[in-house]
Design a binder for these strands. Structure first.
Lengths: 357, 357
DNA sequence: TTGAAAGCGATACCAA
DNA sequence: TTGGTATCGCTTTCAA
C-alpha cells in the first residue's frame, strides 16, 4: 500500500491514451459539442476504464460555473431548518449541484461570514433565510452576478426571488376550524410580535375572529419565545379568562407551554380547552397522549421549491415568488376530533432503514 | 445597474496596482512566506480597498487543498443528524473549512453518489456514517489520500478514525439507575437487534441485570423500529408480565410506544411503571406532562469531535478513535425523580433570537 | 468534426 | 526578501 496519494487521472491522460485531443474528451464527458457518436462512446468507455473523475475546481476556473450551491440558515441543528435543507439537497443533487451548508446562528455577522466563505468557493447561487439588515450585503452579491433566493422571510428591496409560507392563511385556517367546532371564546397566545412571520399569524387570528363577528382581541398575550414564559402567560390567561374554551398559539412551543399550564390548572384537553399550535414541530405529533394540533408548514417543500427556483434562475429562466400553503393537522388537542395516536409521516422512522434516528 | 457580472478582482490586479509581484500578494493574503511587515500591511490594505476575494477553485488547483469537507449522513432532515452536522460546522468553520453536506437516505447507492459528488469537488476529507458494505469504496478514497472519518458506527477494517458513543455504557447507566431506584422487574423493549448500536444497548441491559444478580432476559421483546409496533409489543409485554415495574427501551421511539401502551392499559407513569428511553430526542423532553427519561448522546459533540479529528489528521497529526460518554437524563417518567418540567438546553429556543424555529 | 493553443486565478519553485 | 515562470486540470476559442 503506497503512502502518498496517487495522482488522479486527468483529462490529458485519457486523451493521450486514446490519441485524441483533450477537449474531445471534455466534450465526451460533458456531452457537449459535436463529436462522432463512435468517438464519444469510445472515449466514455476509456473514461470509465481509467476511472477518471473530473476536477470541479479546474472546471470552475474555466467555465465560471462551480456547481456549488450555498445554503445558510439560522440554526442548522433545528429540525425545521434541517427539513428545509434536506429538501434543497434533494433537488440540488438531481441537478448535480453540491450543497455548501452554513449556519448563521441567528446573527448578521455570522451570516455574513458564512456567506463570504461560500462566495470564496464561488458558489453559483445562495439560498438564505436573510437577516433584514444585510440588504446591502446581499445586494452586492446579486450585483456580482450570483442569484440570491430568500426563504421563509424576505427582504422586499432585494429581489422577487423568495419562497414563503402563507402564515396569515395558516392562522386563519386554525382559528376558523375552532370557530366551526363551535368555539367562540378563543384566546391568542402569541410569541415575538416583532417577527414578521409571527405578526402575520396574529393578523390571521384577528381576521378570522372579526370575520366571524367576534370582537377581537378577545384574550391576547404576547410572550417571548420560551416554553416557560408561555406557560406562565397561559396560566395568567386562564385565570383572567376562565371562560376560554380554545386557544390558538403562534408556535408549537407556546402551545406546549399552554398545555402544561392547562394541565396544572386542572383544565382537561380537549374537553375544557382546545389548543392549536403552529409549525407542526416533531414533538407536536410525538406526544404520549394529547397530540398537538398544529398548522404545518411544508418544510421539505420549501427547500425543494427554493432549489428548483435556483436551478431555474441559473438556467436563465425567469422565476416568480412562491407562497406555499400551510396545512392544518388536527390531532387530539382539539375537541371534536379524532383522538387516535397519529404519527406525522416525516417523523415516523422507517421500519426498513438501517438507522434508527 | 449593470446586467453582466463585473469581473472579480484577481490577485494580479492587486499586484499591478501596487507594483509588486503576484505571489507577494498571495503571501500577504495567506500570511505565509517572508515579506516585510510594511509591505504586508500595505498589500492587505489595498486588498481590502479593492475588495479582493480569493478564488478557492484556483487555490485548490495549485495547492491541492480545497478547504472543503464532505459530510454524509443517512437523513439530513432528522434532528439527530442535524445536530451532528451543526457540531461539525462549528469546528469546520473555525478552521476556515466549508461544508459539503450530503444525504445518503440510508442506502449504499445514494451514499456512494453523494460521496462521489464530493470527491469531484476535491474535498479534503470525508466525514461519514458509513454503510458497512461500502468498505471497498471508502478504502479506495483513503488510498487516494483523502481521510475518512466515521461517526456513530464504523467499519473496523477501514481505519481507526472514528467517533462513537458508548452505547453499552449508556444502557447500563439506565438500567443501573432503575435498579438503584429499587426496581427488580425490569423489562427490555428493544428495536432492531441487527443494528450494531442497538445490539450494544441490549447487551448493556443484560450486563446490568446480571451484575445485579437478576436472571436476564427478564422480559424482552424485540420490535421493528416503529412507534406503533412498539406500542403493540409493549401492550403484550404488560399483559404477559403484569409484575413489571420498569422498562428500558433502546430508543425513544420505542419508549413513546411503550408509554402509550401503558397509558391505555391504565398503568400510571411513573407510579406503576418507570420508563427510560435512548437518544434523548427532542420530543423526550418536550412532552406536555410525562417527560421521558432518556440516555442522551452528545450529538453536537460527536460532530465537533469528528471535525476536530479531521483537522488534526489534515495537519498530519495522528488521531486516536474516540468513545464519547452518554448521559442519563432523568425526567418525570422515572419513579423517585424530579417531576419538574424540564427543557433540555439544545431544544429550548433562545428568547433572544429573531427566529423562532 | 477535430486539434492546437490560450487562458482561468492562484501557488510553488527557483533564481536573483 | 522579492520577482519571474511553470503549472494545476479543464474549457474555450480559433484554426484546420
Amino acid at each position: 500500500m503506497s503512502i502518498g496519494r496517487n495522482k488522479p487521472v486527468t483529462i490529458k491522460d485519457i486523451a493521450n491514451r486514446i490519441g485524441v485531443s483533450a477537449q474531445s474528451v471534455s466534450m465526451a464527458v460533458n456531452g457537449t459539442g459535436r463529436l462522432s457518436p463512435k468517438m464519444r462512446a469510445h472515449i466514455l468507455e476509456i473514461v470509465r476504464e481509467m476511472n477518471y473523475v473530473p476536477n470541479a475546481a479546474a472546471r470552475s476556473l474555466t467555465s465560471h460555473k462551480s456547481y456549488l450551491l450555498g445554503v445558510v440558515v439560522p440554526y442548522l441543528s433545528r429540525s425545521f431548518f434541517s427539513h428545509i435543507l434536506a429538501g434543497i439537497e434533494e433537488i440540488a443533487q438531481e441537478g448535480r449541484f453540491a450543497l455548501l451548508a452554513g449556519n448563521s446562528e441567528g446573527g448578521p455577522d455570522v451570516e455574513k461570514r458564512a456567506v463570504n466563505l461560500m462566495l470564496l468557493h464561488k458558489v453559483d447561487g445562495v439560498i438564505t433565510l436573510p437577516e433584514p439588515t444585510l440588504l446591502d450585503f446581499y445586494r452586492g452579491i446579486e450585483r456580482s452576478g450570483i442569484p440570491v433566493i430568500q426563504i421563509m422571510q424576505h427582504i422586499p428591496e432585494l429581489n422577487r426571488h423568495f419562497i414563503e409560507v402563507d402564515n396569515l392563511k395558516g392562522a386563519r385556517l386554525a382559528v376558523e376550524h375552532l370557530l366551526q367546532s363551535g368555539h367562540r371564546k378563543i384566546g391568542l397566545l402569541a410569541h415575538g410580535s416583532d417577527i414578521p412571520t409571527a405578526r402575520l399569524r396574529i393578523e390571521g387570528y384577528f381576521a378570522a375572529m372579526s370575520a366571524a363577528g367576534i370582537p377581537a382581541p378577545y384574550a391576547h398575550v404576547d410572550v417571548k419565545l420560551d416554553i416557560d414564559a408561555a406557560e406562565t402567560a397561559a396560566a395568567k390567561l386562564f385565570s383572567d379568562h376562565p371562560e376560554l374554551t380554545a386557544l390558538f398559539c403562534t408556535s408549537d412551543y407556546a402551545a406546549l407551554g399552554a398545555m402544561r399550564a392547562a394541565s396544572k390548572a386542572g383544565r382537561r384537553i380537549p374537553e375544557d380547552l382546545s389548543v392549536i399550535g403552529f409549525d407542526d414541530m416533531d414533538f407536536a405529533s410525538l406526544q404520549v397522549e394529547k397530540q398537538l394540533s398544529s398548522v404545518a408548514q411544508p418544510k421539505e417543500e420549501i427547500g425543494r421549491a427554493a432549489a428548483a427556483m435556483m436551478l431555474q434562475i441559473l438556467r436563465g429562466e425567469p422565476a416568480e415568488p412562491l407562497l406555499l400553503q400551510p396545512e392544518l393537522k388536527l390531532r387530539a388537542s382539539c375537541r371534536g376530533n379524532v383522538t387516535t395516536t397519529e404519527t406525522s409521516p416525516h417523523t415516523k422512522p422507517s421500519t426498513a432503514g438501517k438507522f434508527h434516528l
